[in-house]
């Protein structure tokens, strides 16, 4: 009973952890680079969800403070942190997407398996060439 009550009072945190792990699962197991970036975004938003929740207060208003309003107010600090975090996240995501487009242009695929194959093929070609020329 006590466990259930604790779980309910911390349900936001627990869901954030579950989302974080789901994102990590996608990032780690998917062989597709775009999907990996989507997984990364889920991880990011889960951390934001956690931080926003730390600033929440029961019965509280958004932190728009006018004279005469008794409050309580949600803490503005986590909100400011998350705003910065969201900007950082979109920056990283767009850079990742551009890099994916370049990988696709160079290796013809965004699947890690296929990229590894084309890399291995390139390596053996390079090695045989080197073997021929450096054999002095």
């Amino acid at each position: 009973m006590k466990i259930a009550a604790t779980a309910l009072s911390h349900v936001d945190y627990l869901v954030a952890v579950a989302l974080f792990l789901t994102g990590a699962w996608i990032l780690l197991t998917s062989g597709n680079l775009v999907k990996k970036v989507i997984g990364l975004n889920i991880m990011e938003t889960s951390v934001f969800a956690f931080i926003v929740t730390t600033g929440m207060i029961d019965g509280g208003a958004p932190p728009l403070v006018a004279p005469g309003d008794p409050g309580p107010f949600a803490s503005p600090l986590p909100h400011a942190l998350v705003l910065t975090g969201i900007v950082v996240a979109v920056s990283v995501t767009s850079l990742a997407l551009v890099l994916i487009l370049r990988v696709r242009a160079e290796f013809g695929s965004v699947e890690l398996d296929e990229i590894a194959l084309s890399l291995a093929a390139g390596d053996t070609a390079e090695q045989s060439e080197r073997h021929g020329s450096a054999d002095d």
């Binding site: 779980a7 009072s9 911390h10 730390t54």
Partner: peptide, 15 residues
């Protein structure tokens, strides 16, 4: 995470 101060409580250090 469940040992963190419960979210929403006015007496948590975050507030």
């Amino acid at each position: 995470m469940v040992q963190l101060p419960a979210p929403g409580h006015a007496d948590a250090p975050a507030h």
